[in-house]
Amino acid sequence: MSVSIGAPTRYDHIPSPPFTHLRRLTDAGGVYEHARGTTPRREHGYCLDDVARALVVVSRESGPAHDDLREHYLSFVLAAQDDDGRFRNRRGTDLRFRGAPCVEDCWGRALWALGTAARDPRALAAFERGARWRSPSPRTMAFATLGAAEVLSIQPTHVGALDLLAAAAVAIGRPAPRADWPWPEPRLTYANAVLPEALLVAGDALGVSAMIIDGLGLLAWLIELQTRHGHLSLVPAAGRGPRDRGAGYDQQPIEAAALADACARAHRITGEQRWLDGISRSADWFLGANDTAKSLYDPVSGGGCDGLERYGRNENQGAESTLALMSTLQQARALLGAQA
């Protein structure tokens, strides 16, 4: 499947990722999950999902400016891991972790983060403990696959990472045999682009061209489905099925970030311009090229608003949304900077 996304002529309007609000959300316990406006809501505590996202973001940065955050977030992820390799997601302000260890999304995101930080022996050892597990969720497996790819970038024959990639590809499966709905699930839900990105990662690492073709086709279809009037119109929080039409709300920043990550992966594999256009569209969605023409980037706070609503935006600036903004801007800076 080949889709022409359409290329903006300039990329120099895209700002660098700000760290101001992320630091505001961070204290000795981790990253606060929620905020009221720009004020952290301490009563809700911390979650591994967000700290893992934060570790991915800071690990992408070169230089020592954010070494303190990198160490802090890595320490949180390591502390969240059980002796058997699984993870607990919730942490209270008393610094105690809640709940039973699991292989839910926090496990997949933790492995993604540990893989991104795997040049640190502590992170690599924790990844290896966690990578022995398998999740029943294809999306969770896809998150873990991104960490496996990072490990393979420094240890190309790492057996645990390769086995995880193969298992994730099986869990995700092939596109459905419907031209109008090739997606391997009955509905689009959240962080959707991570599924084709995982197929790209697995196909590239395992040398299986069919997986790359499947991943590129699903990603192109996903972009086409989410493009209206020249801008992104993202899958809303309630999801989207084959019969849904028109714009949906509440649109979540995590969708734009997952799309930018997947397009970055596709460009690295193929070198094709259309994937740079996808990254640009993702960044522009935060900057106001969306269904309500509202910017979700707050240049004063450095934060990202929690969602695009029918008549505006959610003014709260929680961790997930702020990190989605930062991640998208990182991809734009890395791959579009030379185009400016």
Rank of each mutant, 00 (worst) to 15 (best):
S282I: 04
S280V: 04
H267A: 09
Y297S: 11
C305G: 01
F286E: 09
D277W: 05
C305M: 10
R281L: 15
Q252T: 11
S282E: 03
G302I: 03
R281K: 13
C305L: 11
G271K: 11
R274I: 04
Y297R: 07
T270G: 00
R281Q: 06
G304V: 07
L287D: 02
S295L: 01
S295M: 01
R265A: 15
R265Y: 09
A289H: 14
F286Y: 10
P299H: 10
I279F: 06
S301Q: 15
R265F: 08
L296M: 14
G302Q: 03
E272K: 08
A258D: 06
S301E: 14
L296A: 03
P299N: 11
D261P: 03
D250C: 06
Y311T: 13
V300Y: 09
Q251P: 05
S280I: 01
R310N: 04
D284E: 13
D291H: 00
A289R: 11
Q252F: 02
F286K: 04
A247C: 14
S280D: 11
T270W: 13
A262K: 09
L259A: 06
I269G: 06
G307H: 07
D284G: 02
G307S: 07
D298K: 05
D284Y: 00
G271I: 05
F286T: 04
A262F: 04
D306Y: 14
A289G: 01
L276D: 14
A247V: 15
Q251R: 01
S301L: 15
A264R: 11
G312N: 03
G302W: 07
D291K: 01
V300L: 09
G307V: 06
V300W: 09
R281F: 04
P299D: 14
A260I: 02
E309Q: 11
S301R: 14
K294I: 10
I254A: 07
Y297A: 12
N316Q: 12
G303P: 07
L287S: 06
S295W: 00
Q317M: 15
R274N: 03
G248Y: 12
G288K: 06
Y297M: 09
A260G: 03
Y297N: 10
C263D: 05
A266R: 02
Q273G: 08
S282G: 10
G302S: 02
D250I: 15
R313Y: 12
G288C: 15
F286M: 02
L276N: 14
A283F: 01
K294T: 09
G248F: 12
Q317E: 15
R281T: 00
R265E: 14
Q251H: 04
V300D: 12
P299K: 10
